[in-house]
Simulated scan of single mutants.
Amino acid sequence: MESRSRTRRYGGWWWLVHPVLLLLLAAPASADPRAPLIWAFGDSLTAGYGLPPAQGFPAQLQAELRRQGVPATVRNGGVAGDTAAQGRARLRWGLRGLKARPDLVIVELGANDMLRGLPVAQAEANLDRILTELRARNIPVLLAGMRAAPNMGGDYARAFEGMYPALAKKHRVALYPFFLDGVAGRRALFQADGLHPDPRGVAIIVRRIVSAVRRALK
Rank of each mutant, 00 (worst) to 15 (best):
S3D: 14
R6W: 14
G12C: 12
G12N: 14
W13I: 11
W13N: 11
L16I: 14
V17S: 09
L24C: 10
S30A: 15
P33T: 13
P33H: 09
A35I: 11
A35T: 13
A35R: 11
L37M: 09
F41E: 02
G42H: 03
T46I: 01
A47E: 14
Y49D: 13
G50K: 01
L51C: 09
P52T: 05
P52Y: 02
A54Y: 11
G56D: 08
P58I: 02
P58L: 02
Q62R: 05
A63K: 04
L65E: 07
R66D: 15
R67C: 10
G69W: 02
T73E: 14
G81T: 01
G87S: 03
R88P: 12
R90T: 08
W93K: 05
R96I: 15
G97W: 14
G97D: 06
K99M: 11
K99E: 13
R101M: 06
L104K: 13
A111V: 09
A111G: 07
D113W: 00
Q122V: 12
A123I: 04
A123Y: 02
D128Y: 12
D128K: 12
R129S: 15
T132A: 15
E133V: 13
A136D: 14
N138H: 15
I139M: 03
V141C: 06
V141M: 02
L143M: 00
G145H: 04
A149R: 15
P150K: 13
N151I: 11
G153L: 07
G154R: 15
Y156C: 01
R158C: 06
F160M: 04
E161L: 05
G162E: 01
P165T: 00
L167M: 04
H171A: 01
Y176H: 08
G182L: 02
V183L: 10
R187P: 11
R187K: 15
L189H: 00
L189W: 01
F190N: 07
F190Q: 07
G194M: 03
H196Y: 05
P197K: 13
A203I: 05
R207H: 06
I209W: 02
S211K: 11
A212S: 08
A212C: 09
